[in-house]
Structure formats: C-alpha cells, structure tokens
Design a protein around this nucleic acid. Structure first.
Lengths: 252, 252
DNA sequence: CGCGACCTTGACGCCTGTCAACACACGTGG
DNA sequence: CCACGTGTGTTGACAGGCGTCAAGGTCGCG
C-alpha cells in the first residue's frame, strides 16, 4: 500500500529529517488498511491495547465520557497520526478512540515498529518526537480550555487543524476540509453546540473564516492567529535541528 | 543523599514492582540537591533543557502564560515527580516550570538515567510508565477544564492531590498538606481567585473538606470522589501487572 | 413523502467573572 | 513597641458569557 505509507512518511518527515532509505523503512510499515465507519470506536476505555494504529485517512479523536454522559474530546487524530504509541507499556486504555468520519487505518504490529526503530535512530527519534508533540498539543489545549474564551478556542482550533493538515499536504490554498459536526466541535472545545454555532457566526461576520459544506477557508491565517493568540511552536512541526527555513509561500 | 533518593524510589515503586537491587540503582541516581525558592522558575519556555530534574520536596508546576498575562497551570509536580523526561529529545521547552513553594530538587545527568535504564528493564519501564502517567493525568485534566463545574474541578483536584501524596507517603490519616494559595488553585482550575474562594466555602459547608492553615482534610474521600465524579484509574498508581490488592486500610 | 441528522435562532437564566472594599497575618523598619 | 506595606483570604454587588430550553429550517435518504 504505497499511497497509505506516504501519509506516515509525510507526517514524520515534518518532524525530523529522513533519508530515502528511512523513507522506505517507514512506508514498508504500512501494509493493509481497514475501514472504520464514522462514529465507531477504534478502541474503548478499558480495552487491552493491540497493534499500533495509523490514521491513513479521515479524522478520529481521543475522548472520555463521564458517568452522566458529558463527553470531552482531548485530542484530534488526523491523517498520518499514530494512535497508541503508549499502548505497549500501559496495560489498559485509559480513554477511548473514536472515528469522527469514516476512517481508513492501518494496524502495525509493535514488533515491526521496534524493528524499524532499531534499524534507524532517526526513525526512532521521529516516533518519539511524534509522541511528545502529542503531549505538547495536549498541554496547549489545556490552556485553551482553562483560559480562552469560546471565540478564541474555536479560532485556535482552526489554526491548529489547518497547520496540521498542511503538514501532510491536505490543504488547498487557504482552505482545508472540516468534516466534523458542530456537536463534535462542542465536545472538543468544551462549549455547548448552540454556543459553537453562535461563535461560528461571529467568526464569519468578522471575516476571519468562511465555513460551508464541510470546507473551511481561512483567508488571512496571520490575522486569525493574532485574534486568538495562536503561536504554532507547540506543534513542533519542524525539527528544531533544521536550519530555520525561509518563511514564505512554498513553490507549489 | 539517602533521604532524597527514597522519594524517587517510593514514587516509581508505586508504578511498578522493583527488586532491592533496583531500589539501590534508583537511590544512587539522586546525589546533591539544591533549593529553589517559592515563585522562582525552574525552567522557562524557550530554554534549552539541561539535566533531568527530580522534585525531592515541595510543590512545582508546569505552566504557560498568554501574551496578555493569563496563566494556566497544566500539571502539578509533587515530591517524587520527574520534570523533564521528554527534554532530551525536544530541543526547547514549550512551557515553563515554576516552584509553587520552596522546592528541593536534584539534577540527574541524562547519561546516568540512560545507564540505570539499560541496567534494569524494570527501571526503564518505571520511567516510561511515569512519563505516560503524566500524559494520562494531562488528559483527565482536560476533561475537568472542559466539562466539570468549578465545584467539581476543585474537588477533583483535591482527590488527585491526596492520592498522589499518599503514594509517596506524604499523608497523615485523612489529611495532607496544601501549601499553595487560592490564586494558584485558580490558575490550576481555570477559574477566578474570587470564585475559587466561594467554591471552597461551598465544599466546606457541605462537610466534604476542611482546609485551614495549609492543611487539607478530607474526612470521607469516597464521598468526595462520588460528588465530583472522580475515578482514580487515570493516575496509574498501581501497576496493572500486580494482582488486584484487597482494598482496605493498609496496616499502618 | 416522511423521517432523522444537523444547523440556526430566540428567550431566559445561571454560573462565573469583574470590581471593589475590608480583614487578617506577617515581616520590616523606625 | 508600633507603624506600615504586602500578600492572602473573604465578602458583596453587579454584569456578562455561556448554558438551557425550545422551536423551526434545511438537507439527504429510504
């Protein structure tokens, strides 16, 4: 499955530099993929973890539900993301993973992962950085939930989604897909579906976004970032080893 | 420094089983300690990370501040906690670490950590579980910030603090220390200092806690846990390898 | 055509934030 | 010994962001 392997490759290559041999190593990890329909659980709290799972296409999330039904989504899992880098050491899942849209995912035996990490220090480092970047995003999200207003939370989330999709080549100009419902956005941001709706109106009115038919457009990303106090460092999208790239539009 | 090493030992022993030799290995990691005064920064966002740091005594925290001054504390660091298990791989700190009280901490060279992990798989596992337990706590905290009311957040926090201190032997009966200010509690829980105060009154009035002179007492922990929908699984305080211990008061 | 999922809008109220004043403990210096 | 300042805890009045409830609108699909 070459197409499928490419996503993992792009994701990890956005974190560390890789040689062509290492590219091949990563692509070979991804073999058959399977489909989870929207709203299905990929894994449930309390499960014994199985193989390492890679999101090949579609959106998924980590979430927890309280006894009384309140649900909080703690992390968005986008194409190229690995779900369970931690699962081999903790005995049981302490949260669930659910598909927000139809999701193609690939199961990678832990044994093969260990093999690839042993064969290449850079691959091992990429995996580790990937996991730590997840934890970093987690911390930034806590700042949003604790300190930011509804307006800022949603704007901040849109900035993050756009940049993360951009890192795996899933944007087109100033647009990207936005395939989840306002109810999902509510569970992500810790606000009410009704208030999500009002806040989206507000963002639209101010000309910061347009959002119709599952397509999100951010005409001026810098402006949005300023409005919601977004700074992308926490995403660790570029390896800090690398020389500072000249910022500007890449040759498309 | 034997006393100092004991804290690390107790912390990691609460996560995995260790043999006496491994106990010694861990104790030897901790050599001299140094003192950070309350309110000082142990590390600042943007710093290049140095040695691995162990909290020997006192309370610290991970935090971020937004440009306009809003501060969010993302994690509490209690005695026995390691601050920077991730620092050797990410190039720069993406958040700050601050002392909430006077803190004794010990710097452990990464080289010595690697040595200890290489010498004992159980020690390596303990370190990894420690780090993952931190990430797990992070996720649970996001649930609090996103879904729980002020009342539940503070009650939940108190449950967590009590159990974590208990794991390193720092409780006395139903009491433990609570050396931080209401302002710190506010930055932890994402609510206003004034409202923290009101919420504490509420918890006191209902007889769920008493809090005076920096001592927190939880007369009925089960009752409090029920009130705030707390379930301790996310702390991973017991290794799931171990046979389920009979729950009940331990022989003091 | 009818049903269900999703989006939208309005009215109303509460939880929490804001502003402000005061009490209290503590340490410092006169 | 007392004046004073600072940090912290406490309380009250008021306002606003956001939650709740409810109704209607749109779209896709069986």
């Amino acid at each position: 499955m070459h197409m499928a392997g490419q996503v993992l490759l792009r994701r990890l290559a956005s974190l560390v530099r890789l040689t062509p041999e290492e590219d091949g190593l990563l692509c070979d990890l991804v073999q058959r993929t399977r489909l989870m329909p929207a709203r299905a659980d990929v894994a449930r709290e309390g499960d014994l973890p199985g193989d390492l799972r890679l999101i090949v296409s579609g959106w998924a999330c980590r979430y927890k539900v309280l006894e009384d039904g309140r649900r909080q989504i703690m992390a968005l899992l986008l194409p190229g993301d690995l779900c369970d880098l931690h699962a081999s050491v903790l005995r049981r899942m302490d949260h669930s993973i659910g598909a927000l849209t139809d999701v193609h995912l690939s199961d990678i035996p832990h044994e093969r992962v260990r093999h690839a990490m042993a064969a290449s220090p850079a691959v091992a480092r990429a995996m580790t950085v990937h996991m730590l970047a997840g934890a970093s995003g987690q911390r930034e999200w806590a700042v949003s939930l604790g300190q930011r207003t509804a307006f800022e939370r949603i704007g901040h989330l849109f900035c993050e989604i756009f940049l993360r999709l951009d890192a795996v080549g899933l944007t087109a100009g100033t647009s990207c897909e936005m395939p989840i419902t306002q109810t999902d956005l509510a569970d992500l941001t810790g606000i009410t579906p009704v208030h999500v709706n009002r806040t989206l109106q507000d963002l639209r009115t101010r000309g910061l976004i347009s959002l119709k038919g599952r397509i999100l457009d951010i005409p001026d990303l810098d402006a949005l970032q300023r409005e919601v106090l977004f700074s992308p460092g926490y995403l660790h999208l570029r390896d800090q080893d690398a020389p500072e790239p000249v910022s500007g539009p890449a040759p498309s």
